[in-house]
């Protein structure tokens, strides 16, 4: 078992952002955490990565995440967080290189034989190799997101946690991101948990899903079990299928070189 979460509760003051959520994740699985705004999806990631204090227990590869020292924890769990506010003009490469921190041991000796290769590969994967010398302050929102994606890929954790990773990314890099994550999850000893808003992505990618609303888990299991009208309509308070079909409609005929149906 890669990760087990038992009775996770996370509070902001008296308000419960996550309330008694339990699930487990096995090697090779990609868990899509979905739900409306304020459902507690990002807070769940904060608890699972021990970023915020929580009640309950999270074990990663059998070890309690609260007891794991920071470096082994970062080797086990890597997080791509939302909204990275930047204040200083670090270069792209400097930020990505920090992803290797958990693999370097000792104060002065930065012995990390795979480090250079991993950093180079992460920059290539995210299309940031050309911009490696650029200051992060001069990058667009989407490019910054790719820098931090490259950082967490260079970190090479066993469990990759992505909190709304496609936000601010253009179509090309959304495609790259999800296809890359698909390949990543299939590697031995890896698993992925990602928070996504786009239900089409959740239907297309991932193996499992966890649907949240008001901090609670409404449904969990395989994609087929969770992404059903009865669960989704209840969680979002609307006819989800009808809306998704409405969105897809204008694309009918697009492949044949026609302009598609722009009438909704």
């Amino acid at each position: 078992m890669m990760l087990t979460a038992s009775h996770i509760t996370l509070k902001y003051g008296e308000r419960k952002a996550v309330s008694d959520v339990s699930f487990s994740l096995q090697e090779g699985q990609w868990l899509m955490v979905i739900g409306p705004n304020g459902a507690g999806k990002s807070s769940l990631i904060a608890a699972l990565s021990n970023t915020r204090p929580f009640q309950g227990k999270v074990t990663v590869r059998g070890q309690d995440i609260r007891i794991l020292p920071p470096r082994p924890r970062a080797q086990a769990v890597g997080v791509l967080a939302q909204h990275q506010a930047l204040h200083y003009a670090f270069t792209v490469e400097e930020v990505v290189r920090l992803g290797r921190y958990a693999h370097r041991n000792g104060w002065l000796a930065a012995h990390d034989p795979q480090g250079e290769a991993m950093v180079g590969q992460a920059l290539q994967w995210t299309g940031m190799a050309e911009l490696r010398e650029r200051s992060v302050l001069t990058l667009s929102g989407g490019e910054r997101q790719r820098v931090f994606l490259a950082q967490v890929l260079a970190q090479d954790p066993a469990i990759l946690m992505l909190d709304e990773p496609a936000e601010a990314l253009d179509l090309k890099y959304q495609k790259t991101l999800f296809e890359l994550t698909d390949v990543w999850a299939a590697q031995p000893g890896k698993a992925v948990i990602s928070v996504v808003h786009d239900l089409s992505v959740a239907r297309r990618f991932g193996s499992h899903a966890l649907l949240m609303r008001d901090g609670k888990c409404l449904a969990q299991g395989t994609k087929a079990e969770v992404l059903q009208p009865k669960h989704l309509n209840k969680a979002y308070g609307m006819d989800v299928g009808a809306w998704m079909r409405t969105l897809a409609l204008p694309w009918a005929g697009y492949e044949n070189g026609q302009n598609g149906n722009n009438q909704v």
């Binding site: 990565s49 967080a81 920090l98």
Partner: peptide
Amino acid sequence: NAFAIGEENAHHIGINV
């Protein structure tokens, strides 16, 4: 360097913040 980029990021990459 990690702190200057962000404290939460520092935690995620394995620093004992």
